[in-house]
């Protein structure tokens, strides 16, 4: 009980901050303004990281340009699939009281996601035609 007393304000501040930041991403494009931080990993190493392009993607998706957004960072698509799947499984198991197995609990699926992320990271840094599509 003591912990929840402290947690509530933090959660409220967090949610407000989240929507505040979302609003920033709706109105300002990260490729046209300098107010958003550049990826520190890219700034230091010159290599794209798996998260590069997610700010531009957020701007496009929030403005309704879903496909242009996902082209900046395809991992956002993967994240969306995982989150929707998690939510669906949660609803089916807890609201409809069924017992379906969560595929994400299978170790092969989890390792598959790890491999996809690492492959994505390597391939998007290759400066040749089919792979340049993956670059942010």
């Amino acid at each position: 009980m003591e912990i929840t007393k402290f947690k509530l304000p933090i959660i409220i501040i967090g949610v407000l901050a989240f929507f505040g930041v979302l609003a920033l991403y709706i109105y300002w494009s990260p490729s046209e303004t300098n107010i958003f931080p550049k990826c520190p990993f890219y700034s230091v190493t010159g290599i794209y990281c798996p998260g590069c392009g997610s700010q531009r993607a957020a701007h496009q998706i929030l403005n309704g340009h879903i496909f242009e957004g996902i082209r900046h960072n395809y991992l956002i698509g993967l994240l969306a699939i995982v989150l929707v799947y998690q939510a669906l499984v949660f609803i089916i198991n807890n609201v409809l009281n069924k017992r379906i197995t969560n595929l994400l609990h299978k170790s092969k699926v989890a390792s598959g996601i790890l491999i996809v992320v690492i492959l994505f990271w390597i391939l998007r840094n290759i400066n040749m035609f089919p792979f340049t599509e993956l670059a942010p």
Binding site: C39, F41, C49, P50, G51, S54, L75, L79, V117, W121
Partner: peptide
């Protein structure tokens, strides 16, 4: 996955 995508740092990996 969120941490990998959101904050541009490979710690998420």
């Amino acid at each position: 996955l969120i941490s990998t995508i959101v904050c541009c740092l490979p710690i998420g990996i």
